[in-house]
């Protein structure tokens, strides 16, 4: 079986600087690959390329066997929901003025999967999946704790029925107990839904605990670890 994500010889450039310089790795369904390295080593550029936020200069990114770099904008639109990001700042990645349930509903609407009959129930299901209830759904982001807000961000990512989550420092802004709660939630979601994770994190103990394999990046390349 081909891996869920298969990155080969990825090169990402910004003008004349090469941020990612020939990186290859795979992520299987149900697997967590940790990505560590000093800031500026190319981790975030790798993530941006996998999320199709940044066109690579060269190399291949195969997702579910489909080579993404060859696709046009219209075909990419069909793939994008299957790879979802979860970012560090739970408040910054949600809109401050919209209720949580509307933000979780947004991907459903955008992908034409919303109906008045099934939509609200689906949103409640997604919130329940991350340990939030309808009452949380009615609140604004600043009315939630950092951990609850990060849960809402995960619920929104799950609304697209993704197969791969790009976790970019998802617990760095949180207190220890909330951190542990989010890591537990992600482990549980992975077990029940077979999600693949690319986990970017600076906390070595957390990366070792949470990942099946750890890749180290330095100056745009993977180093033997």
């Amino acid at each position: 079986m081909s891996p869920l994500l298969d990155v080969r010889e990825l090169v990402v450039r910004y003008g004349r600087t090469t941020a990612v310089d020939g990186v290859s790795f795979q992520v299987d369904a149900g697997e967590t690959v940790g990505l560590i390295g000093p800031s500026g080593c190319g981790k975030s550029s790798t993530a941006a390329a996998v999320l199709q936020l940044r066109r690579p200069h060269s190399g291949e990114i195969r997702f579910g066997g489909v080579e993404l770099t060859a696709l046009g904008e219209r075909e990419l639109r069909a793939v994008r929901p299957r790879v979802q990001p979860v970012f560090q700042d739970p408040y910054g990645s949600l809109s401050p003025r919209r209720r949580i349930r509307d933000q979780v509903a947004e991907p459903l609407r955008a992908q034409g999967r919303w109906s008045a009959a099934t939509g609200p129930g689906r949103v409640r299901e997604l919130l329940a999946l991350v340990g939030l209830d309808g009452e949380h759904g009615g609140r604004l982001p600043h009315e939630l704790s950092g951990g609850q807000c990060q849960r809402a961000g995960i619920a929104r990512a799950l609304a697209s029925d993704p197969e791969l989550l790009i976790l970019d420092e998802p617990v760095s802004a949180l207190d220890p107990s909330m951190r542990a709660g989010i890591l537990n939630l992600l482990l549980e979601l992975q077990e029940t839904r077979g999600l693949g994770y690319l986990f970017i994190c600076h906390d070595l103990a957390a990366v070792r605990h949470f990942s099946d394999r750890v890749l180290t990046m330095r100056e745009g390349r993977l180093t033997a670890s």
Binding site: S177, A180, H209
Partner: peptide
């Protein structure tokens, strides 16, 4: 003790659930 227990250490089994503080 409860706060420190939330943090994984070298001895924590890989991908095991971490203790959290109950309540708020």
């Amino acid at each position: 003790e409860a706060l420190l227990a939330c943090l994984p250490t070298a001895g924590t089994p890989r991908k095991s659930r971490l203790p959290t503080l109950p309540g708020r």
